[in-house]
Amino acid sequence: MEHSPVRISDEVRAAAADGLPILALESTIFTHGLPHPRGLETALAAEASVRGAGVVPATIGVVRGVPTVGLTSDEIERLAATDAAKVSVRDLPPAVLRRLDGGTTVAATAWLAHRAGIRVFSTGGLGGVHRGASETFDESADLGTLARTPITVVSAGVKSILDVAATLERLETLNIPVVGYRTTRYPGFYVADSGHAVEYSVDSAEEAAELARIRDALGLESAVLIANPVAADRQLDPVLHDRVLDEALAAAGSAGVTGHDITPFLLDHLQRATGGESLEVNLEVYRGNVALGAEIARAIAG
């Protein structure tokens, strides 16, 4: 890491050297995914819960052009309150050059975490293949990065506004293992069951940790994706979800919204149409993934 523009906090660096459990956390959830100050509150609460579980939190972001693994509370507050850029892996060089503040996506967070020696990363939902991608070629950079980054990622699947079936096909093509946590039904972020199955499951954090060890022993380079569904009694009502999603897709089509604008458009429509309920489910999903990620980090370190 000598001469690298990446800064790793002293706490994270020492924990990695000592083999202590560390959990990576992304920053786009509080720079782009949640409204201020809910995003800031969520980020600080996640760090506190990880510490309470005996794990070192490593929130990752870009501060004044410095990709940072292990943001301080002041740095988290800065990113949450500023008009931060959304930084994926391809955006890191320009962000460094222009000294930008940025929230890191799943792709950039996973890449920086692995570079710092972190083995587990918790997020809300993954990026994937967008609806209509056969014409637009709109596919998240998360997928390509996860295909070559050996880290364990805990998520609640991909958001249901994406093409879930096509995303699962793409993950298979990229040789990225997708494993349900105590389920063989692939979660749809806001709902526990997207309507699609996964072939494998694990029943405990210890099994997830052993899966990562086997991946490493085989010399495979891809991430292992642990699909952790929201509890059925905390999910968005599936009937409401399907109706509102159909309405959101129709509204986007009528408004001519395409490309990178469609995801925020659809998520905003879902939030307004559900009276904020989708936002509360989003938070429930994230808390659950952070808790499971901390368990897996302890099991891997142990």
Rank of each mutant, 00 (worst) to 15 (best):
V154R: 01
V158K: 04
S160I: 03
S160C: 09
I161G: 05
I161L: 15
L162G: 05
V164S: 01
V164C: 00
A166T: 00
L168V: 02
L168K: 03
L168M: 07
E169S: 15
E169F: 02
L171C: 04
L171E: 07
L171N: 02
E172R: 12
E172V: 03
E172P: 00
N175C: 08
P177I: 06
V178N: 00
V179A: 00
G180H: 11
R182Y: 02
R182L: 06
T183M: 07
T184P: 01
V191L: 05
V191P: 02
S194G: 06
S194H: 06
G195P: 05
G195K: 05
H196W: 07
V198H: 01
Y200K: 12
V202S: 06
S204R: 09
E207W: 02
E207R: 09
A208S: 12
A208F: 09
L211T: 10
A212I: 12
A212T: 11
R213G: 06
R215W: 09
R215N: 14
D216Q: 07
A217S: 15
L220T: 13
L220M: 14
L220Q: 14
V224I: 11
N228A: 09
P229M: 13
P229I: 11
P229A: 14
A232L: 14
A232F: 11
D237T: 06
P238W: 04
P238C: 06
H241W: 02
H241I: 03
D242I: 03
V244T: 10
D246V: 14
D246W: 09
A248V: 08
A250G: 06
T258K: 08
T258W: 04
D261L: 15
D261H: 14
I262C: 06
T263C: 05
T263G: 05
L266T: 05
D268H: 15
L270D: 11
L270W: 07
T274P: 07
G275C: 07
E277R: 14
S278F: 05
E280S: 08
L283Q: 08
E284F: 10
V285L: 15
V285W: 05
Y286M: 13
Y286T: 13
R287A: 14
N289A: 04
